[in-house]
Amino acid sequence: MNHNKTQINSIINQHKVFGLCMLTTIAALSTITAWSSNAHAEGNTYSNKLLLTGGVSQVEGAAGGGLTPWAVIGGYGTNNEIGGNVHYTYVKSGDFDLNSFGITMGFYDRFELSVAEQKFDISDLRGKVQAGLGADAIGRDSLDQTIVGAKVRVFGEAVLDADTWVPQVAVGVQYKKNHDGDFIKGAVVGAKQDHGVDFYASATKLLLDKNLLLNGTLRFTKANQFGLLGFGGSKDNSYNPELELSAAYLLRKDVAIGAEYRMKPNNLESPANTLLFGGANVVDLKEDDAFDLFVAYAPTKNISVTAAYVNLGNIATVKAVGADYGKQDGVYLSAQVGF
């Protein structure tokens, strides 16, 4: 786990480059939005989708629920408009927490682009490992990644096609770049790559007369813990299909409650277990599926807040040093502001 100075500098620079990339993207998207605003100078013409029908920004930045992308296109723009929003999401799961922020842009209710920056705080685990082993084996307080997403609506109209069972269907990709590559590919985590691409297809249907929205997403991914622990591992380094399901019930036009279930891969086996502990499962990186129960409230089209109970199962447990983190559950809070 000893980096030489050049490696450390290279990591820092890499991180800066990605930060810069994201800022540039945000600036570019803002310019496009501003241009579009000028193009349609008069009146209120960028937020004519119906309330909450653009979903909220899910944890990786795509429009959807909290955990899962939906087939809807983010923002309140219709087929004649561009819309977007910025979001900030905080997840506190007992022994870890995740801060995420980003931007989601929808173009003509057809294309969606998103960028999200995630910071996963592991300082508690770091402290326990350092105290227990007498060595700072983790060497950082957070694992960070940038996610750039794109989505295209293929067919269907989730909200208005209330007389058919045909859902709205979209396909999307999420490119994820982890900024702690040396660590997550090292002996503690043992991921195979520090970047990866998820591919997904989503089908979303609003059963308007039942106030019920259903979504199913099939994702092909190698990402460990969304990519925060890298991509692939010694147990499995291939793309696997993972199913993600959401159901939301509209209590009012501005309030939805719901539940989500997201299957996740289980690729990792810490190389340290073999190297240092004679094969004992001391560093337990078994990955579990995730689920949440959420309530989303949109007082206006420009603002929405989502609160959820989220259960992520095991992320990283090192019982030997007192880090018995087997069940990570807690709160998910997210706010988004549209423009």
């Binding site: 087929n79 004649n80 109209e157 208005l160 096609d161 209330a162 308007l208 007369d209 106030n211 509209l250």
Partner: peptide, 25 residues
Amino acid sequence: PFNAQNKLLAKLAPMYRDVESTTGD
């Protein structure tokens, strides 16, 4: 009530296919 509103809106929403005739102005 919201339920009743959506029951009627579900009957009206598909009419967008006949009502809308442009994605422009």
